[in-house]
Amino acid sequence: MATNPMHQFEVYRIGPEIKLGEIDISFTNASLFMVISSIAILLVFNLGTKKNSLIPSKIQLLAELSYTFVSKMISDTAGSKAKPYFSFIFSLFMFVLFCNMFGMIPYTFTVTSHIIVTFMLAAFIFIGVTIIGFMKHGIGYLKLFVPSGVPIVLLPLIVVIEIISYLSRPISLSVRLFANMMAGHTMMKVFGGFVISLGIIGGWLPLSFSVALTGLEILVAFLQAYVFAILTCIYLNDALNLHH
């Protein structure tokens, strides 16, 4: 068994090597876990919406609860104008949540602990929101960078600052999810290693720590998916209802 705590983040190829020109598009363990979480989501919602009984079964309850949760989140943060984007935010939330949760099972791979995955999601959101903003407001969307009631002297500085804060959105969005998942999983592995190295006498303390950390990590896995989705809603709100 590998004692290196970073070993769990290694991406390796499964099956044959596939190349598209210069780009390696082989099926890896990361792709496997993305496929697994997507299939799990489809399964839960297919089974959950199959039989619309008045007294819901457990799986139907899960599907309905997550629907209400995301629906309430969107209407609270982005208003009724954001209703058409429900399906996008819902699938985003479920995908991140399921990837995080699958990573909590021992011997699995956490897809969201790789910055390229989270950055791709964040960049997609960023570009999409920018396009939506320009479609809804035309060139007036640039008013987002010019807050009202600022003296003329300070305006150039404020505009630069606003542009920096707009561009930092995809970075903060992706780094947050990636860093939380990676740090948590590394810490769990390190404490697991302490249990082995301290043996049966001293190993109980890190073991209890590991148990506590597992609970915390499940909380973080849910919370990060929630934060990811709610920030998408906030950015969408900025694009749909221009305040400045």
Partner: peptide, 19 residues
């Protein structure tokens, strides 16, 4: 969620400097 807000603020501070 206060914990979510804390995560949000800390990473945003770093991301602004990075950008």
């Amino acid at each position: 969620s206060s914990l979510g807000t804390a995560f949000k603020m800390s990473t945003e501070l770093v991301a602004h400097v990075a950008v």
